[in-house]
């Protein structure tokens, strides 16, 4: 019984991690149809921000939750201004350019901080379930994933800014005719996506450790999740995370973490063969 509870908790926290690392990507891809291959490096930069800040004696929660989204949001705004803006509408060129950006970030950070793993210890200790110990931080990640999803939903659904953003994404010309500058909406959306990625980086830093190539560990999973989710960005990401996160955690339990990821990929590819437009291309189409 205890074992079942622990396994269930593991699955839930696996799903939550997948949601956290995918949301930034989902916002940028879902809203702007821009595939940001430097997403993993945004996570990495968020992680480094958290590490550096806590090394300077900043309160751990501020270092994890506040500074990374600000820092990476600023980086994202610069990237949008310098690179992405030139390539709107050229989806494949955007992918290639952000891939270049990703390599450049990996190289730059390696030069600055060296190619070694640094980490901060996870706060919140652990609690007991029968004979087992469960890390409190895992539960915090679950709460964080729920909070992030809720925040995105509320902003998009109930605020004027969200309405303008959704309108611009549906029909940029019409939005422009109504007096909304699409350029600025795109820039802000990309910045918001980058900030979400930064926050994700800060959140996973205590669990995963931080090194220049940590982005590559998450980017594959995040992409597969967003793509499997399909058109409705929030619902799609949540449903796909639920499905793929469970597959990942269960197979990790039964075999090794690597086979967990292989199983995730195989399930995702077969699913895309059946539902080429993602889960929300077929089900829950009207969802956000």
């Amino acid at each position: 019984m205890d074992y079942a509870v622990v396994v269930a908790l593991q699955i839930v926290s696996g799903v939550a991690t997948l949601v956290i690392v995918s949301l930034g990507l989902a916002v940028v891809f879902g809203m702007m149809r821009v595939i940001n291959l430097a997403h993993g490096e945004f996570l990495m930069l968020g992680g480094y921000t958290a590490i550096l800040a806590s090394g300077q004696g900043v309160n751990l929660w501020i270092a994890i939750l506040v500074l990374p989204p600000i820092a990476v949001g600023i980086i994202g705004a610069v990237v949008e201004r310098v690179l992405i803006r030139r390539l709107y509408g050229r989806m494949i060129d955007t992918m290639l350019a952000t891939w270049g950006l990703s390599l450049a970030f990996i190289g730059g950070v390696t030069m600055l901080f060296g190619n070694s793993v640094t980490g901060i210890s996870a706060p919140l200790g652990s609690f007991e379930v029968g004979r087992f110990h469960v890390a409190g931080y895992d539960l915090f990640l679950v709460a964080a994933s729920v909070a992030m999803s809720l925040a995105i939903w509320i902003v998009l659904k109930f605020t004027p800014a969200g309405l303008i953003a959704r309108g611009t994404m549906q029909n940029a010309e019409m939005a422009a005719a109504l007096g909304v500058p699409p350029d600025r909406v795109y820039a802000l959306t990309f910045t918001a996506g980058a900030a979400l990625s930064g926050l994700a980086g800060g959140l996973i830093a205590p669990v995963s450790g931080v090194l220049p190539t940590m982005g590559t560990a998450y980017i594959a999973k995040a992409f597969i999740t967003v793509i499997t989710g399909g058109a409705a960005m929030l619902t799609g990401t949540l449903v796909a995370s639920g499905l793929l996160g469970s597959v990942l955690t269960i197979f990790t339990f039964l075999t090794t973490p690597v086979f967990g990821e292989v199983a995730l990929l195989v399930v995702a590819i077969v699913l895309l063969r059946l539902l080429p437009r993602g889960i929300t291309g077929r089900f829950l189409r009207r969802a956000l």
Binding site: L83, A97, W99, G100, L103, G107
Partner: peptide, 20 residues
């Protein structure tokens, strides 16, 4: 002095933006 990844990444971006 320069990390090869940094160089490659910059080349990559330049190739896309300047000589597509």
């Amino acid at each position: 002095a320069i990390d090869p990844n940094l160089l490659l990444g910059v080349l990559f971006m330049l190739a896309v933006v300047v000589v597509p």
